[in-house]
Design a binder for these strands. Structure first.
Length: 225
DNA sequence: AACCAGGAGAGAG
DNA sequence: CTCTCTCATGGT
């Protein structure tokens, strides 16, 4: 029932905004670092922090480079130095700790080679066990860094769905709703759809669904109801 | 000048 | 399980 509605929302947004090209980043490790840094933080501020990390030699310029070597540099640098570099992203003390937690986990699991062998559900549970990686960050990492068919729910998603009849307010329910809505597609197609869908929901959320910028009347999704 | 951004954890009830 | 509080910089 709401299955077709979910697809309708996706196609309206796709027609309106087109491909968003997420996730910005030159390597998978940079995608993960960005996912942690952007927790409750404007992406503009994250870019400044990423720039600092890049100059400090903490971001691979491509996936051809050994991510494990970069991960060890975080551990060598430590919380103090790391916090100073990511200061523009806010919550720098927490996020420095979170980044170190992930890098320690990453090295211990054998980097992308080791983690890449795990089944999606197993990998998700392992990511969630890292202090500082919650549901949204874990799913962002699964989708954008590991290219697993996982839909990423965020505050915009719940807000937008709520304004169009589908009032869940529950992260897992909203996630399964979208994943089930596209369950007929093969894995590669779902990765593409979930990638664009989440980016599009953030886009329309920023433009029309913000609290201090309530342009609901101009939202392209109004053509549904 | 309050309000919020591509959240998460800890604690209370 | 659902609130509530904290963490902090930078843009509107």
């Amino acid at each position: 029932m709401s299955r077709s509605k979910v697809r309708q929302i996706f196609h309206i947004l796709m027609d309106e905004f087109g491909e968003q090209g997420w996730w910005p980043g030159r390597s998978r490790l940079e995608v993960i670092v960005g996912a942690i840094l952007t927790q409750n933080t404007a992406w503009k501020n994250v870019e400044k922090a990423l720039e600092n990390l890049g100059y400090a030699g903490l971001l691979p310029s491509s996936d051809e480079e050994d991510a494990l070597e970069y991960a060890r540099r975080y551990l060598k640098l430590g919380r103090e130095g790391l916090a100073r570099l990511i200061k523009p992203a806010g919550f720098f003390n927490q996020k420095a700790e979170y980044l170190l937690n992930f890098m320690e986990f990453f090295v211990g699991e054998g980097g992308f080679a080791g983690l890449g062998r795990l089944r999606t559900e197993t990998l998700r549970k392992k990511l969630l066990s890292v202090k500082g990686i919650g549901r949204e960050t874990a799913d962002s990492i699964l989708l954008y860094a590991f290219e697993r068919p996982v839909f990423v729910v965020d505050a915009y998603t719940l807000r937008i769905f709520s304004r169009h009849d589908m009032d869940f307010g529950n992260y897992e329910d909203a996630r399964r709703l979208v994943e089930d809505a596209f369950s007929d597609l093969d894995e590669g197609e779902r990765v593409r759809v979930f990638n664009e869908f989440h980016a599009l929901l953030v886009r329309v959320g920023k433009d029309y669904c913000r609290k201090h910028n309530p342009l609901c009347s101009a939202c392209p999704l109004n053509s549904m109801d």
